[in-house]
Design a protein around this nucleic acid. Structure first.
Lengths: 180, 180
DNA sequence: TCATGTCACTAGCCTAGCTAGATACCTTCA
DNA sequence: TGAAGGTATCTAGCTAGGCTAGTGACATGA
């Protein structure tokens, strides 16, 4: 939780000096740009804090939580969720998934049912109480975000969408590399 | 990495139906709002993917990485970084921090020096190559974000800042609760 | 100066990943 | 049709990275 000694103001960190001067912005604008970056970081941290609070409340690890959400959404969508699919989604081995499902089953969150057509396989089902709790919580936090986004004008939404998409694109593709 | 069967369109998930109708938006606007939420999620995922790629490249766990960043930034700032401070920042025990520093030292990233004034304590120093790699990488990704934020107009930056701050505030404070 | 607090470290435990291999079942094709 | 090979889950046993408890060296305030 929370990284960041907020000192990544590019005017402080010397290799970044050059970026600033290249940008040709005046000081007030630089402050504003830095504020954009800071608010990105703050949101990310807030978001992490919140999901960790949920995890602690439900006494689940991060992966177990993701698994539960995947199972719930899959079911919501009428798909048969199998251990293999969960492993693939989470990017962990099927062996680890077996243990994960054991934990979730022991905690009363899921149960395994025989797969209707493939007798090697298994369908994972979320028990009612967990399903309800999860949907309420996801729903609530989703609603808050929805309301905030709905409160913007069309033009403002476009600005936000474009900015975030550009950010995502920039992180994904280009000069990926090195360190910290 | 990557959660999210993107089906959190509130028109699909029934408890959210009500949110949508309350908002009084037409369909085109709802699409746009959903797109805002989607781009938030996409950025977060991209960001996570990137930092995981870095971690894999440096063969470090997430906590070890955070520790390194903390140490580097602390040094950048002229502070004497001690194991205790690292433990406090990361929210782990000092015992775990001892092991963490053992790992980082074994991998050639840091070394321990005697604390100049407190002979019980220790100062952690990042070795040159690691420091350089980390700063380059942080600098590079920081520069890309900086450029994107700099490319916005003042008004656009204000929109983004306000939206993200509101989001962060909304996640932190209010009805925190339950589940998934 | 001496009692108490603080710092890093050691020892030993637990959880949640992993790989390898077992078992049951499905599928394809000669 | 039946044999070979592929696939799904599970078991066994390992490792990494957390934890708590306790130690020894040092700091500090009465």
């Amino acid at each position: 939780m929370s990284d960041d000694p907020s000192l990544f103001d590019p005017r402080v960190l010397d290799p970044a000096q050059e970026i600033v001067s290249r940008s040709g912005l005046d000081d007030a604008e630089i402050d504003q740009v830095v504020e954009v970056l800071r608010s990105l970081r703050l949101w990310r941290e807030a978001d992490e804090r919140m999901s960790e609070a949920s995890r602690r409340y439900m006494k689940l690890g991060a992966t177990d939580m993701r698994a539960l959400r995947f199972i719930i959404v899959g079911l919501e969508n009428g798909e048969a969720v199998t251990p293999g699919a969960i492993a693939a989604h989470l990017g962990i081995s099927t062996a680890s998934t077996t243990k994960l499902l054991d934990r979730l089953a022991a905690a009363g969150h899921i149960r395994r049912l025989p797969h209707p057509t493939d007798r090697r396989s298994v369908v994972v089902e979320v028990l009612d109480e967990t399903r309800r709790a999860a949907r309420d919580s996801i729903g609530r936090s989703h609603a808050r975000r929805f309301d905030l986004a709905a409160a913007l004008t069309r033009q403002q939404r476009d600005v936000v969408i474009r900015f975030l998409r550009d950010l995502a694109a920039t992180e994904d593709d280009p000069s990926r590399d090195s360190a910290a």
